[in-house]
Design a protein around this nucleic acid. Structure first.
Length: 118
RNA sequence: ACACCGUUCCGAACAAUCGCGCUGCGAAUUUAUUCGUGUGAGGAAAGUCCGGGCUCCGCAGAGCAGGAUAGCAGAUAACGUCUGCCGAAGGCGACUUCAGGGCCAGUGCAACAGAAAGAAACCGCCGCGUCAAGCGGUAAGGAUGGAAAGGCGAGGCAAGAGCUCACCGGCAUGCAGGAGACUGCAUGGCCAUGUAAACCCUAUCCGGAGCAACACCCAACGAAGCAAUAGCUUGCUCGGCUGCUUCAGGAGUGGCAAAGAUUCGCAUGGCGACAUGCGAACAAGAUAGAUGAUUGUUGAUCACAGAACCCGGCUUACAGGAACGAUCAAAAA
RNA sequence: GCGGGCGUAGUUUAGUGGUAGAAUAUCAGCUUCCCAAGCUGACUGUGCGGGUCCGAUUCCCGUCGCCCGCU
């Protein structure tokens, strides 16, 4: 598998805070999307934030898995070289996978991160 | 049967496709990755309430202070845990619950009410006196209170009172039983309340910090302040140690993942917790943090909930289900 | 993950085991031509669940929530 098709996690608190400060944001009902240009042009990095106020450890992990799974589905058509941070909002805990996937598609479209189908 | 009590266990299952963490083995090559195979959260992983292992500071040596525990005996690495027994309370019962040592070592507190709260005369009763007042005796009765001078009955007395006696309760002494808590019996003077989850006393235990501990490697090898009248070592004192503190810089590896107070089975010892012996089994080890998506079938719309150095407990949360043992009542015998 | 601290009126806070107090806010009245200020009065309570005690904000235990520090 090529590097561009793997899910690259975002590391480092400074990158998160830069995304919050300088990134362009797109908000939906269940999540908020932040985007800034990244250093690595061959892949995009994904960071997911779920606050402790959203629920216990099990609920937070479930939301992160749903978002990661939905993001993985869009990897082949995603633009490279971006840093993307997704912050989950309270409705995401009870929304379910299908709702989150549809909303992620809408937000990625708004942010112009989707390439045309090859 | 229903119900109730105790102990133990499970806590959605299976298959297919795509995807994720780790790693033993095999293969491939671009020597770092890929492919195949294997494996991948809990009974509470939680709260962090106790106890240990482990690590460092140090040599914790002495005294004081402080903290914890509290029937007895045992189990254990240790414990505030567990087991058995004793006592008290609850239940028809199986059984359950209990911080369950000491206020005749001392000190304190007991608001309001009440005459009086650790020692007592307001009303009443009796005697003297008498127009009345007053003086003395008295805790049986009234009233207050959570608690009122051991309880209750009889004798006794001017009226009364453990003043005397029977029974019950409590205390002390003696004897007997028991490993002990304690139990039983006898005798004694009749015995001044409650509160130690108030201070305290008695007995036992406790050096401090915690894997963000700590070790190694790379980079840096700086700046400022204090400096024996200082700093560290536990709160203090003695004693001990020798630089100390702050700022800047701060990447990675180990610790840390398969093996130990482990789990299961059998045997022996013990009422039991548990111990000993033999045999077998055991790869979660992440580091922004791995278990998800889709489809099908079955019960059913699926509880509480996610490892972060590791164990033993406790406590709290929890849809529902299973096994074994025991109890009461009815019926039958 | 580890170590500490705190929960009292709507808000900010007092409170040796004995009726829980103050400021402010809110409401009503007085004052004023009206408003503000001032004066008077009312209203509102110990995070939750047990235990000890005659009696608990206080003492003890367990929970829930919030805050702080340590790479």
């Amino acid at each position: 598998m090529k590097q561009s098709e793997r899910l690259m996690p975002l590391k480092g608190a400074h990158l998160f805070s830069r995304a919050y400060r300088k990134g362009r944001s797109f908000s939906g009902g269940c999540m908020v999307l932040y985007v800034i240009p990244g250093r690595n042009a061959s892949a995009s990095l994904l960071g997911i934030t779920v606050s402790r106020k959203r629920g216990n450890a099990v609920a937070r992990n479930r939301v992160k898995r749903w978002i990661r799974e939905a993001y993985r589905g869009f990897l082949p058509v995603l633009k490279k070289g971006k840093i993307i941070v997704i912050v989950a909002k309270q409705p995401a805990v009870t929304a379910g996978y299908a709702v989150l996937r549809d909303e992620l598609e809408e937000l990625l479209g708004k942010a112009a991160l989707l390439d045309a189908q090859p």
